[in-house]
Design a protein around this nucleic acid. Structure first.
Length: 264
DNA sequence: CGAGATGTTCGGCT
DNA sequence: AAGCCGAACATCTC
């Protein structure tokens, strides 16, 4: 589930733990989720540290603690964050739980495609600092998109939208939404897009991200009623613009839906 | 019961 | 050699 706006929503689920100490940590340290992380140090250092702040970027989150400790979380396909009462008993899929006096901060992920990273140091972790500029930011220019499309000239535009180094935070449903709004066929090769279409792609990417952040990210409410989003889930989906039955195919390795009439 | 799921990474092929 | 594609990861749901 988690793309850009959903990640921001889940980040806030741990806000109730801000400015409070971690008293105990429970984790499934042997799981794949913790690959590359020093689990022993995480478990020994976090108790006694205070949660000071958090931030979401693209599909990732960073939690900052006192004592120069940092926790990175990627939700993968099925990851979630939530808060539970302080006497919470972790279930099978609750792979990391930070117990505080008044609540337990829980990270769960049944499929375990997510990831937990642990960093010690005054500076934010290097893997966080190198994330590309957000799609909604000033630095995300039409020129940047145009250059990327040229570099990936032989790649289907749908697959291009899923490249995180170029469109950070965009996932499968957002990619389909962007293409529908820009009226671009998902199979079109990046190198064949006219300048005007490249610009439309850039503009709609920003718009979809901005509106998702204003709706989904706030309370997990649905995007606006006239979005393609609502039709793309249903087997017999129709184009919100012209009523044409939607096409379905695997493009860029992912299920893709589009309107064969207005997306050329 | 089989197929597919809103993500990433790796290995093999061109 | 860069870049593209499909498979793998592990579990749940429809």
């Amino acid at each position: 589930m988690p793309e850009l706006a959903e990640v921001e929503y889940y980040r806030k689920q741990w806000d109730c733990g801000l400015r409070r100490d971690v008293v105990r940590v429970a984790l499934h340290g042997q799981m794949r989720l913790f690959r590359g992380a020093d689990v022993a140090r995480l478990a020994s250092l976090l108790p006694g540290a205070k949660l000071l702040g958090s931030e979401a970027r693209a599909k990732q989150m960073l939690f900052r603690f006192s004592r120069d400790l940092w926790l990175g979380v990627h939700l993968g396909m099925t990851g979630k964050l939530r808060a539970e009462p302080p006497d919470f008993a972790p279930g099978r899929h609750d792979h990391l739980v930070l117990f505080q006096k008044r609540q337990a901060l829980v990270f769960s992920d049944p499929r375990m495609f997510g990831r937990v990273q642990f960093h010690e140091g005054r500076e934010m972790p290097p893997w966080w600092a190198i994330l590309p500029p957000a799609v909604v930011s000033q630095q995300f220019t039409a020129e940047l998109v145009r250059a990327f499309l040229q570099r990936r000239a032989r790649l289907a535009v749908k697959a291009a939208l899923l490249v995180q180094s170029a469109f950070p935070g965009v996932g499968n449903w957002m990619a389909d939404e962007i293409l529908w709004r820009a009226k671009i066929n998902p199979r079109a090769l990046c190198g064949t897009l006219t300048e005007a279409r490249a610009e439309a792609l850039w503009r709609e990417a920003r718009e979809v991200c901005a509106v998702a952040m204003a709706t989904v990210a706030v309370d997990f409410s649905d995007p606006p009623a006239d979005w393609f989003y609502h039709e793309r889930w249903t087997a017999a989906g129709h184009c919100p613009r012209d009523g044409t039955a939607l096409c379905t195919a695997q493009i860029g390795g992912r299920t893709t839906r589009w309107c064969p009439r207005c997306q050329r």
